[in-house]
Amino acid sequence: MKKVYARPKYLKKVHFHYCPGCGHSIVHRLVCELAEEMKIQDKLIGIPPPGCSVFTYNYIDTDFVESAHGRGAAVATGIKRACPEALVFTYQGDGDIAAIGTGETIHAANRGEKITAIFINNAVYGMTGGQMAPTTLIDMKTTTSPFGREKDIEGFPIKLSEMVALTKGAVYIERTTVNSPAGIKKTKKAIKKAFQVQMDNLGYSLVEILSPCPTNWKMREIDSWKWIDEVMVNEYPPGVIKDTTNEQKKKKPKKKGKKKK
């Protein structure tokens, strides 16, 4: 019989602590699949900052360095500069990358650091119990915007990926979803490309993933998946936000004898 699916080799055999319907476990699985398919597991170094995904190292079987809240891009910079042969990725939530870590992210991108950010956007602070994030939508109720986010009081949802795209060092930025098989496929392709951009030494890459948080959205799982398509994508439209891969490749003359070991 033809085997169509198996547990990825680098997904540790433990139970996820994530809530039912959460998108994290799907993205974890994609990273594990890519680690195997791209034969990069021995080069990958992940950086999970505080948030629901701080335990990423319990699930993905690669090296991990936990960072302080928001500092992922700085820690990734340190690792990559000290060890350029590694494939370094941060795995950050929206509170982490788009609030406390905005400075680190923008500047790492602007320096064209050869790192990859996997940015899980669920429009709330998940681990701390569903507070308002900078990405929270207008009128969306959270524990710290109990009457719904009002633009005059709480400001507007922030578009971190579009901001990062303005930097010249950012080479590839795409926004995807994980609420459907098609979305999951696109997400995998996007992460693969982002890793490839880093391996080709082209610059900074980021994949923003719209991910359901049924617990803090106070929705049934199926409704949270629908909500992404019906509401969230209006603020955060999926698609390629920036891709200068080809221009960057033209700039870089191929090194001779690259394959030599």
Binding site: V75, I79, C83, A86
Partner: peptide
Amino acid sequence: VSAINMVYGASAAGV
């Protein structure tokens, strides 16, 4: 803040 966190990353990488 960034500088010290870069230190943290580089130290983790053993240099």
